[in-house]
Amino acid sequence: MQERTPLETKIEVGKLSVWYGSEPALRGVTFDVASKTTTALIGEGGSGKSTLMRALNRMHDLNPEARVQGSIKIDGAEILGAGVDTARLRRNVGMVFARPTMLPTTIGDNVMFGLAAQGVRDERSMREAAERALRRAGLWEQMADKLDAPASPLPEDTQQRLSIARALAVDPDVLLFDDPTAMLDPIAALSIEDVIARLRRDHTIIIATNDLQQAARLADITIYMANGEIVESGDTPLLFNKPGDVRTEAFLAGRNPRGAVS
């Protein structure tokens, strides 16, 4: 891993709590993410990784039961609360989900969807943006002459790369990956990892994953979460080799972290 120089802070999360109904899913989480770094969120199922990811681009707005407290600043600007242009926020903070979902239209329209939603009408600039995005997702050679074909029949790993291209087409600063290889076989998962690795230089990336090796391979910083809280965070090699908390150690060793506490 190449040596990093001190970088400006891209995301500041302060005392962030999220409830679904009366159930707390996140409990006062605080952390910063530096610009153009890759951060991995690891933890058991239900530890709050996905909830945290979804708060970062206000996807929780789609859940009427979600209640959010605390602060999230991106480039110093608060994104929670009323009056935020959420459409612009989501174009700046792209998201790729665990299961690739194709919009019921062509491959080209899928990639250009974000631009069309933004109001871009110039066919040529849209095609150029789509080509750029597909190239960065490693799909251009494969898809160049299939832009008018329907997207749904594509194999799942290609769909996932297309999802990444779709997110890249609107040129986001931050990319959120919510367990992007969960549905893929190991070979396909590695090809997605390759794409993410290439994007690290130009984007601030946060990836929630259940694959510890993937976190170790991709992330500069790793955050271990349990029960809606951050247990420990730090440089990935350090956290994996010398965890400071017994719960982190137990989780990394494949033991029940709750047992480690008691």
């Binding site: 612009r88 174009r91 969807f113 609107v170």
Partner: peptide
């Protein structure tokens, strides 16, 4: 739900999603 989630994550406003994705479908 998944379609709406994906389109929302791409910055599409609610009514744009309804008219351009959900209504045709």
């Amino acid at each position: 739900a998944k379609l709406r989630e994906v389109a929302t994550a791409l910055g599409a406003p609610p009514m744009y999603i309804v008219i351009s994705v959900l209504l045709p479908r």
